[in-house]
């Protein structure tokens, strides 16, 4: 079997902005693949196209995680979710007014088998499904490291009341609840302290060990270098490098791209510092700074569909 996910010449333009430009890449089954790049490189836009929130301007998305090979272009987000592709969001998207447990249960949506009449009549099979789902939801909470015991646990708290790091974990639990074959994580470590990031790395490995292919976007280079099997680097919408983490780290193009980031993105400091002397590449601060600003100014535009995109 080939790659779980294949991007072929994937392109997205927003008016004059070439957010993603003819990107080819593959995500191998059972791997942890990372998509990295400076702010505004087009990473989230790629994810949004994969999950059906944006319609690609050009190119193909081939998915082989389901029963048959599927072309994802033109499918709605909910149809793609049914193909067992789950995701988390860069700007956490939980249902803040609902309990932690209910947030996980939303993840089971694609797996519910009861018909509406069974719901209305509250049939034994429907009740059994609900009970199993609830137990399973607690198990997923525990799996991601959120205590789900009924006495001391957080399941009855409102999702909004969780600390930032826990919200990210809750989103992962919800995504896992849909029993995905491909899991997309958009900056899962953002806002986490080093200790939390450490735990997250273990969690991601654990997810992979359960046979789920993980495709993630991350700025934390330590995380990327340690856990990924394969890394793809975007800059200004174009793929500039790919390979094993060690290869990518040495790639002068990557170093150059990240150098330009130095001012605006402190998270990439570690990487750039190491490579600063040997490469001597030309920094290009003006481009990356503008990309970073756009992201800061309109988080919704970056992470959500715009009017033109609404199917």
């Amino acid at each position: 079997m080939g790659a779980v996910l294949e991007l072929r010449g994937l392109t997205k333009h927003f008016g004059g902005v070439k957010a993603v430009q003819s990107v080819d890449m593959k995500v191998e089954p059972g791997s942890i693949t990372a998509l990295i790049g400076p702010n505004g490189a087009g990473k989230t836009t790629c994810f949004n196209m994969i999950t059906g929130h944006y319609v690609p301007t050009a190119g193909d998305l081939i998915y082989r995680g389901g029963e048959a090979e599927e072309r994802l272009n033109g499918l709605r987000a909910d149809q793609i979710a049914k193909l067992r592709i789950a995701r988390t969001f860069q700007n956490i998207r939980l249902c803040p007014e609902q309990t932690v447990l209910d947030n996980v249960r939303i993840g089971f949506h694609t797996r519910s088998r009861s018909a509406p009449w069974q719901v209305l009549l509250n049939t034994p099979s429907f009740r059994a499904e609900e009970a199993e789902m609830t137990a399973s939801a607690r198990a997923f909470l525990e799996f991601v490291g959120l205590d789900a015991s009924q006495e001391t646990g957080i399941e009855a708290l409102l999702a909004d009341s969780l600390p930032y790091g826990d919200k990210r974990l809750l989103e992962i639990a919800r995504a896992l609840a849909s029993n995905p074959s491909l899991l997309l994580l958009d900056e899962p470590a953002a806002g986490m302290n080093p200790q939390e990031t450490e735990t997250l790395m273990d969690l991601i490995r654990k997810v992979r060990d359960h046979g789920i292919t993980v495709f993630l976007i991350e700025h934390d280079m330590k995380l990327v270098m340690e856990i990924s099997d394969y890394v793809v680097v975007l800059d200004h919408g174009e793929k500039i490098a790919e390979g094993k983490p060690a290869e990518v780290r040495e790639n002068p193009k990557v170093v150059a791209a990240y150098l330009g980031q130095e001012e605006s993105d402190r998270r990439s400091e570690r990487l750039t510092k190491v490579k600063l002397e040997e490469s001597g590449a030309d920094p290009a601060p003006e481009t990356s700074a503008s990309g970073g600003e756009a992201t800061e100014a309109s988080p919704d535009a970056v992470d959500g569909p715009t009017d033109e995109e609404t199917p």
Partner: peptide, 27 residues
């Protein structure tokens, strides 16, 4: 009955976060 089922949870998800609802398979 509706509310305490996947149907109702779908409705609530649409209300609280449309994008999250879609990504979890809610049309």
């Amino acid at each position: 009955r509706l509310r305490d089922s996947y149907l109702g949870r779908g409705l609530l998800a649409v209300r609280d976060n449309e994008l999250a609802a879609q990504s979890n398979g809610v049309n």
